[in-house]
Amino acid sequence: MTTAILNGAAHQPARAATPPRWSDAMNAEWTKLRTLRGPRWTLLAGLLATVGVGALICFFMNRNFASVVSDGKPFEPVRTSFAGLVLGQLAMVVLGVTMIGGEYASGMIRLSLTAVPNRTVFYAAKAAVLAGVTFLVGLVAAFTAFFVGQAMLGDHGVSLGAPGVLRAVLGGAVYLMLIALLSLGVATMLRRQTLALGILVPFFFLVSGILQAIPGVTAATQYLPDQAGQRFLQIHHQSKDAYGPWTGLLITVLWVAAALLGGWFVLRRRDA
């Protein structure tokens, strides 16, 4: 058995012809992601939640349009069709957290870092693969949610060609990607997926909404990553808004950058 393993008596190293590059670290991360069932189901659940909840809200909005929409505020057809993002973004949180948290939980992180000892390359490859996958799935989710939602809204819907609409729909995909990256950064800082999920899921699902409802705090909550990001999904400027869609995107990007940098800092400094 023993000698069969190997190449016979004299050991001849079978080295790769060219040293591994950046793309090899990404290839490894992509292979990791696609060979687990969890991420597939998570992404599918996120897709269905985003489209399904959006369609449902649009359907009832259309039936009770006059009573729901007050006259002072311009109606937001795109954002209404993205109502399911509140639920869909949780899938992104789970994916972003488990992508690194699963490695810490199983101890595989040590194997990963012996294979790719440059931690910046390892982390960047992970972030790049996560960004690519969530953006693509986000595109499918955003366009499907938009078209289904607008169909449900009937006369109150808008076409993709209307001003600001394409930007807002693409924004849905960008938003989902950014939430996933934020979660990756937070999980890398905390290094424990249960802890990261325990903080992020209630935050995105509950806390942000509750804070928003507290008078006096509302103004500040506009700067939270989810609310700022969702501003990018609006096509009209609402009277309560302190800033426009692009500023909203910038604010979310800054949150994400801070989380990713924090994770990078911790990953580089700490023993694995």
């Binding site: 060219t18 290839n27 990791k32 060979t35 069932r37």
Partner: peptide
Amino acid sequence: GSLLEASAAQGGRTARDHLLWLARSNRIP
């Protein structure tokens, strides 16, 4: 090559896939 702890693998992945990502990270065929 190193073996640090019994199973540094995520249980949801097959044995082959576990080695596959590892191979790709270092350009091993």
